[in-house]
Amino acid sequence: MLRKLIPARKLGFASALFYLLLLYIIAALVWWFVSLMRQSHQMTNYKLEELKADDPAYLTKVQQITDEQHRATAKYVGEGTVFFSLIIVGAFFVYRAVRREFKLSEQQHNFMMAITHELKTPIAVAKLNLETLQKHRLDEEKQQKIIAMTLQETNRLNTLANNILVSAQMDEKAFHSTKEDLNLSDLARRSVEEYRTRFPNKNWSISVEEDLSLEGDPLLLQILINNLIDNAVKYGSKEGEIGFTMHRKKNMILVSVTDNGVGIPDNEKQKIFDRFYRIGDEKVRKTKGTGLGLYLCKRIAFEHNARIVVTDNLPTGANFTIQFHV
């Protein structure tokens, strides 16, 4: 269950209140230190005034009083330093926790906005197609075309549901992986062909080596490949090429998905694998997505002793590569 969303506008108020309280605590600590030092100085003066100059032990007593004052000063300085350090360290951790909570809240808010858009489109298309079949008597060819479009949209819903369900289960460590020996080439080819059918206007470049096998979970690996292809379709240019290659290199199986989109800035290349993270502002973003796809890709790759990296696809675009160790 998602945590209660905190409006982003409250972040400024919370930060201001935090700094105000921190300054108050530091001011109180400084006032405590100054007061103790003043009190120690006054007590030293009182003791010195009570001494008699003709006392044979006058100098010895003066030295004792002075040493006592120095010890008290060192004590106050030490205690003050410890308290100040604890305040700063505690404030740092509290502030970081609050910032993390606000960031998570904003990400969840963006996720809710994105998931709403992702769900509305396939539901609306499927509903319109079914209503068309119900109200109109179409010829067999048109019926099959509408049915195929409806199946594509339900596949989108199924993929979205799988992403959300698997992500939640993996986060809660409740997902039970069922690894088996499988033909990764066949699995990848089926995924690519499905996307080629859904997006026939895209320029596809596909190269899959035959009979590449490994031990893995079929559902997770299909989600992994589908998410990478889906990411390339979303962010690639309309006229650009979408590349998919799979081949063996020594003791590794390399899977590469490329696009010719705008690419990913260097400072974003690691962030895009965080849960719910998406580049840009959710309110004005036109590209669909939930921020779970690449997060799942990284988690699934890790589950299969694999590594996923993103590099620039020159001259433009991104190149995602998965390195399976076999």
Rank of each mutant, 00 (worst) to 15 (best):
F93Y: 14
V94M: 15
Y95N: 11
Y95G: 03
Y95E: 09
R96T: 08
V98W: 09
R99V: 05
R100M: 07
R100K: 14
F102S: 03
K103A: 14
H109E: 09
N110M: 01
M113Q: 09
I115H: 00
I115R: 01
T116A: 07
T116N: 12
L119W: 03
K120W: 09
V125Y: 06
A126W: 02
L128C: 05
N129T: 13
N129A: 15
L130F: 14
L130N: 10
Q134W: 14
H136N: 14
R137V: 12
R137M: 06
R137Y: 04
R137S: 14
E141S: 10
K142Q: 10
K142E: 13
K145N: 11
I147V: 15
A148S: 14
A148F: 08
M149P: 00
L151C: 08
Q152D: 14
N155M: 10
R156S: 13
N158Q: 11
L165R: 12
V166C: 02
E172I: 05
K173I: 06
A174N: 13
F175A: 05
S177Y: 02
S177D: 04
D181G: 09
D181R: 14
L182H: 04
N183I: 00
D186F: 07
L187N: 06
L187G: 03
E193I: 07
E194I: 00
T197H: 12
F199Q: 05
F199M: 03
P200M: 10
N201V: 04
K202A: 11
K202H: 11
N203A: 07
W204I: 08
I206M: 09
S207L: 09
V208D: 00
E210M: 04
D211H: 14
L214S: 07
L214G: 05
